[in-house]
């Protein structure tokens, strides 16, 4: 069956749900992490583009759910449940969390990528969602596209080409 569907854009600190033949895409992941939770039988997936490891870092009045690893994973699960996907059937793929700048600086911001990855993994473990594949760390920016039809995550970088996980 040839069906193209549309590609749904996920912005920074944003999350979206898609069903095949639609795809999910987020561009320019640096220290941010792209989290995909999916159910291959239902061909349904959710993608979040998180910026920070923990919502306790928030100093504002309102908490933006898709911005933090902890609130994003929780909300993504709930949104998928709302469209009839059960938590136990969910699998995860993650990408991003790079350290874009190689410096001797020990500042918290320079290490934010690896901390984001760590935080996402902790959340997925908390909800017992297995990570099927990941492309994290390194020093390259990533644009990712997920196909809920077959569970393939395509990762594009400007310096290392394209790969699928």
């Amino acid at each position: 069956m040839i069906e193209n569907g549309k590609t749904i854009k996920v912005g920074i600190a944003d999350m979206k749900i898609a069903k095949a033949p639609d795809k999910l895409r987020t561009a320019g992941l640096g220290s941010c992490v792209g989290i995909i939770l999916y159910d291959l039988h239902k061909k349904t997936a959710g993608m979040a583009h998180i910026m920070l490891p923990d919502s306790t870092l928030a100093r504002g009045k309102t908490i933006h759910m898709a911005k933090y690893a902890d609130t994003a994973v929780e909300t993504l699960i709930r949104k998928l449940e709302e469209v009839g996907v059960r938590k136990v059937t969910l699998r995860a793929k993650i990408a991003g969390g790079a350290q874009m700048f190689q410096t001797a600086s020990k500042s918290e911001i320079m290490r934010i990528g690896p901390r984001n990855v760590e935080a996402v993994k902790k959340q997925l473990e908390k909800y017992r969602i297995p990570i099927i594949a990941e492309d994290t760390g390194g020093s390259n920016g990533r644009t990712i596209e997920f196909n809920p039809e077959n569970g393939v995550l395509t990762i594009r970088t400007v310096n290392l080409g394209i790969k699928e996980i």
Binding site: A13, G28, M51, A58, R59, S105, V158
Partner: peptide, 26 residues
């Protein structure tokens, strides 16, 4: 600080300037 270089995606680079801001604002 000592400046650092990256030849990469603009979005992936500029987010480093948004981290501190993102704790208080969108």
């Amino acid at each position: 600080s000592v400046p650092a270089v990256s030849i990469d995606m603009f979005g992936a680079i500029i987010t480093y300037g948004l981290i501190e801001i993102s704790k208080v604002s969108d």
